[in-house]
Amino acid sequence: MSDERVSLVHPRRSAVAAPVPMIAQATLDRASEEGLRGHLEHDRGTLLATAALGALMVLGGIVVLVNAASLRDSPGPGLGPAAVPTVVGVLLAAVGLVLAARAGWDLRRATKPEPVPRERVVRLAGMLVLLLAFAFLLPVLGYVVCAAFLFTGAALLLGAPRPALVAAYGWTLAIVVFLVFDKLIGLALPVGPWGF
């Protein structure tokens, strides 16, 4: 989400930041956050995202630990290949758990959010589909067609008016990039059956 939003919703943040040296500041922030709870963490969307990220971290931590357990230890003294992943995995899961739990706790007292319009979520999903299509069609249709498609689609999803104009820009950009990077510099971009 755009950074302006952060500074608008949490005007205190910036006030909290800075006057005190960092480490102390971080601890102070935590203290002040405890005190200000309910003022700071009131956005339902942020809390939901935090909970999801925490859950993902717990999951990731478990994967890291399972993977670390499957590594052969090195024969000599010192640290083996699993030592650092084990530490990281445990911490990842633990911090994720705390994040998720705290967010879940705060969610109960969260204010009603300003809802994200459904249309924007659809646009985000559209962007993901567009990106995936780009990745998988690239070896088949070649760079120029795919990049032109990506540019046009992305611009329209972002709200560009006048599709024909955007398509013309996208097509031109894709060709210029292809000519410069493939023909001139020799980057060997994927080509379609028509040679570009």
Binding site: A168, W171, T172, I175, F178, G195, F196
Partner: peptide, 24 residues
């Protein structure tokens, strides 16, 4: 001004086609 992007696209296409044919 409104036509310029389309002209640019057409010119770029022409260059692309020429270079593709030439390099093959």
């Amino acid at each position: 001004k409104g036509v310029a992007p389309f002209v640019a696209a057409a010119v770029a296409t022409a260059v692309l086609l020429v270079s593709t044919v030439a390099s093959s």
